[in-house]
Structure formats: structure tokens, C-alpha cells
């Protein structure tokens, strides 16, 4: 028996919004530590890694490890039926070929359940080693979303250059060029609003705007985003989900031909 109950059901709605443009299907791997999902987009350029810890749920039970392959469009459709304040419960029997989502309104007056068929998906996991990155940038997630949106008007790709003075985002295209520089916040009153840079070596990398814009669909999950970069390795864009886990996106850098 698998059962995971979340009073803050809107978290699951937001998680689906954050992954459904990038992935069409994915496997939710559930064990007694929680729920994990790892999947690459169809072109194998980016990867989504989601972790929701068991202790972040209001009730969590997983008697046997279970891998549930799901069509994410279908999951998104079902979660759209949940109210923002609803409690969401996912449950499945051992070896089941369906999963059930139960939504309860705050006053318990409305209870809905939706049963969805599971899929058998080929598991293709990448081993991602713990990495020390040359630069990590923490900044307000809404600011990062704004920068990605604004710069994608200028070109298909964006250069992110991090030095100890700050971080510069640039794009160049037919209409011209755009540069956005963010300085490190001098005095941090509210950490959520600060730009904080930790740098061992300066790094400049180029990434596809389209994917960065997909990643920013996670903005509502966290007030802050962390970008981790080293020369010639994938960028990591991490949104921490309060008290329960994180969603990380990995994106391969563009390479000069």
C-alpha cells in the first residue's frame, strides 16, 4: 500500500506545472524515504530531478517500493480539478496498475477521487555525482524568471557570466543585444530578496533560453532560486520546496562549434 497525503495540496499542482512543459511522461519512484522523479526531456538536453521527502507529507506510507509511470498531461488535468486549498492524497495498492488522487476541501464538505491508469515506462536514470561548483548564485526566483523572459526576446541563447562583482545575463540577436547585470546584495536584510554569489573561479556559459524559460515555471514553488555553474558542465537550477524537498533542473551548456 502506498499513500501520501499533503494538506498543502497546491504544492503538487505547482510541481506539475513546473514539469509538464518539459516532460510528457515520467516515473514517480516511491520508497519509505519519499517520492523521487528523474527524467530527461525528449531531446536529452535537460533533466528534471524532483524530491519530496516522506517527512514533508502529513501522512506517508509506503510498504513496498513502487514505481508509478504517469502521463504528465493526464496528471496535470487531474490536479487542475483540485482546489488551491484542498488536501491532496495519492494512493495505490501494491503492484497496482492505477493510482488514485483524492481531493478534500478544507471543510471536508467536498471529496473527489480520480483514478488514473499507470504506464510501463523504460527507466533511464543518469547518475549525477555530488559536484563542487565554481559559482553558485542565489537570487529571487521572480527576478530570474523576469530576466529569462526579457532576454529570450533578443536571442535563442543566453550567456551567464559570473564574477565576484556580480552576475551578467546577456543575449544577442537580429534586433540588437541586451545585458542585465546584478550586483551582489551589499547588506542582506531579507535573504529571499538578496542576490548572493559564492565564487571560486569566474565562469561564463551559454544556455538555450527556451529551456531556462521552462525551468522558471517552478517560480511559484520557491521565492528563491539557486544557479550552480562550473566550466563545461551542466547548469543546475534549483528551487527548494519549503519543508518537503526540491526540484532541480540540469541543462547542458551550448558549445561553440
Amino acid at each position: 500500500m502506498f499513500e501520501a497525503r499533503l494538506l498543502r495540496g497546491s504544492i503538487l499542482k505547482k510541481v506539475l506545472e513546473a514539469i509538464k512543459d518539459l516532460l510528457t511522461q515520467a516515473t514517480f519512484d516511491c520508497d519509505d524515504s519519499g517520492i523521487q522523479l528523474q527524467a530527461m526531456d525528449n531531446s536529452h538536453v535537460s533533466l528534471v530531478s524532483l524530491q519530496l521527502r516522506a517527512d514533508g507529507f502529513d501522512k506517508y506510507r509506503c510498504d513496498r517500493n513502487i514505481s508509478m509511470g504517469m502521463n504528465l498531461n493526464s496528471v496535470a488535468k487531474i490536479l487542475k480539478c483540485a482546489g488551491d486549498k484542498d488536501t491532496v492524497t495519492m494512493k495505490a495498492q501494491d503492484n497496482a496498475d492505477t493510482v488514485t488522487f483524492v481531493f478534500e476541501s478544507p471543510n471536508q464538505e467536498k471529496v473527489s477521487d480520480y483514478e488514473m491508469k499507470l504506464m510501463n515506462l523504460d527507466l533511464e536514470h543518469l547518475g549525477i555525482p555530488e559536484t563542487e561548483y565554481s559559482c553558485t548564485i542565489r537570487m529571487p526566483s521572480a527576478e530570474f524568471a523576469r530576466i529569462c523572459r526579457d532576454l529570450s526576446q533578443f536571442g535563442d541563447s543566453m550567456v551567464i557570466a559570473c564574477t565576484k562583482e556580480g552576475v551578467k545575463f546577456s543575449a544577442t540577436g537580429e534586433i540588437g543585444s541586451a545585458n542585465i547585470k546584478l550586483a551582489q546584495t551589499a547588506s542582506v536584510d531579507k535573504e529571499e530578496e538578496a542576490v548572493i554569489i559564492e565564487m571560486d573561479e569566474p565562469v561564463t556559459l551559454t544556455f538555450a533560453c527556451q529551456y531556462l524559460n521552462y525551468f522558471t515555471k517552478a517560480t511559484s514553488l520557491s521565492p528563491q532560486v539557486q544557479l550552480s555553474m562550473s566550466a563545461d558542465v551542466p547548469l543546475v537550477v534549483e528551487y527548494r520546496i519549503q519543508d518537503i524537498g526540491h526540484i532541480r533542473y540540469y541543462l547542458a551548456p551550448k558549445i561553440e562549434d
Binding site: V45, E124, A252, I255, D257
Partner: peptide, 14 residues
């Protein structure tokens, strides 16, 4: 001209 490398070029299959 820039090209995009696939991710499995950086990480091994688990």
C-alpha cells in the same frame, strides 16, 4: 553558431 550537447555526454547512466 552554437550547438547543444546532450546531457548523457556529461553523466553516466545509473
Amino acid at each position: 553558431q552554437v550547438a547543444q550537447n546532450p546531457l548523457p555526454q556529461y553523466y553516466t547512466w545509473a
